[in-house]
Design a protein around this nucleic acid. Structure first.
Lengths: 228, 228
DNA sequence: CAAGGTGAAATTTGATCATATTCTGGGGGC
DNA sequence: GCCCCCAGAATATGATCAAATTTCACCTTG
């Protein structure tokens, strides 16, 4: 998984080589997804060049990509910031996510094998642990992992890519909501998904995923509504 | 509208100022959308710097954005090319487009006013003209214009953005199909959409749009199938 | 003797950096 | 309170470095 939780200089031990603009993109992406950058916060090129220890060109390219992803916002006057989510945005995101992610779940259900189900369950166990210990960062990472892993089994790269992108739009807000209310209140639909996978019932899987997404977006909506 | 049909140096008369990487992005985007770049064709940075008369940094940024859009493909060994569409891709695109664009049409139907309907109709007239004269480039531009204009009325920026992105994925192939079979065989669902708009029937609009998308993707599928 | 393959050198292209230029925003002076 | 000037950040260019592909010569083999 591309998730590296810390800001350590990222020992390049794993692959061997991979372009700087790519690593910068991944780091920035993780920071946005898992809430190290708050909605509304300004992002400067020069700030990132020193905090990430990279040149200016790679940072510029990474920022462009993230703007294109909807993870960052170009404020017109050459300023870049993490966008705030409006309730209309949540409405749109909810519709699109339900449509895409339920289809991804359906397709994954048709192809998944027992090993892969076991892996999903392992992630879900880690997720429960994070919830029980109140580990917000862990919750965000494991929850994302669950969905990301599942979509990887669907053999539908375009839709998986779209789902990943949408995640970037509400990631920062999810962090805010969790930070405000904790991780307790989230009911766990993942169990339903895994059970239906085992019973080989794609429609049930799709339906459970739709419910999971709906509940998640509802949480974000309520959490953000409390602040607006 | 951001649609500039010709390759003329684009007299910057309209706004007054706008960054180089932005103009490069728009030009490249138009070239991809309307088929000046064929699927499979390689894209080089240095080639674009001279063909577009821009520096290397803006070109790089534009390419990154288009890769993020799915309009270009990073071939691993730092090579960039226009992606070829596989039939599985068309299947995914068809599902997502039907879901998103029918919803966009529904929402647009709820907000649209007579002036806007008239503008849609004007585009559709130009579209018919392009079809009758066998003007493939005109067909592509007007067809895109119709959808793009319509989605602008839906007051749903995220979904409109997604729809725009998806268009970039099949644009080049659409050009190939049209170039091979001409524009004759496309039935015109746009009339149904406009009629239902006038009668203020959002569900009918959504349904007609779904059919339009389905027919379009079916055409692409058949056209590409003939070559593979 | 000819044909094919392997290796290194050269060219082409992408990645990164340092630098110059331009624009935005704020503070000081009138 | 308004306007002009200055500081700082972003944009854009060109140069430099690194990597990959291609070319070509030479050797091996049938």
């Amino acid at each position: 998984m591309s998730v590296t939780n810390s800001a350590v200089q990222a020992a390049p031990a794993e692959g061997v080589k991979l372009p700087a603009h790519e690593t910068v993109y991944q780091k920035l992406r993780a920071q946005i997804l898992f809430g190290e950058l708050a909605p509304g916060q300004a992002v400067t090129i020069q700030g990132l060049t020193e905090s990430l220890g990279a040149g200016m060109t790679p940072v510029r390219e990474a920022i462009r990509r993230l703007i294109s992803d909807g993870a960052l916002m170009f404020q017109g006057n050459r300023r870049v910031s993490v966008p705030l989510l409006r309730s209309e945005d949540i409405d749109e995101l909810s519709y699109v996510r339900k449509s895409i992610e339920s289809e991804l779940a359906r397709r994954a259900a048709l192809r998944i094998n027992p090993d892969q189900i076991a892996r999903l369950e392992a992630i879900d166990v880690a997720l429960d642990q994070a919830i029980n210990t109140g580990d917000v960062a862990g919750y965000l990472v494991q929850n994302y992992s669950f969905h990301s892993e599942l979509y990887g089994y669907a053999d539908a790269p375009i839709m998986a890519d779209l789902a990943d992108r949408l995640w970037l739009r509400f990631g920062p807000s999810l962090r805010v909501v969790c930070g405000r209310f904790g991780t307790q209140s989230f009911p766990d639909r993942h169990k339903d998904i895994i059970d239906a996978m085992r019973r080989n019932e794609p429609e049930k899987v799709a339906h459970a995923m739709e419910k999971d997404v709906e509940q998640g977006m509802e949480q974000v909506s309520q959490g953000l509504g409390a602040s607006n």
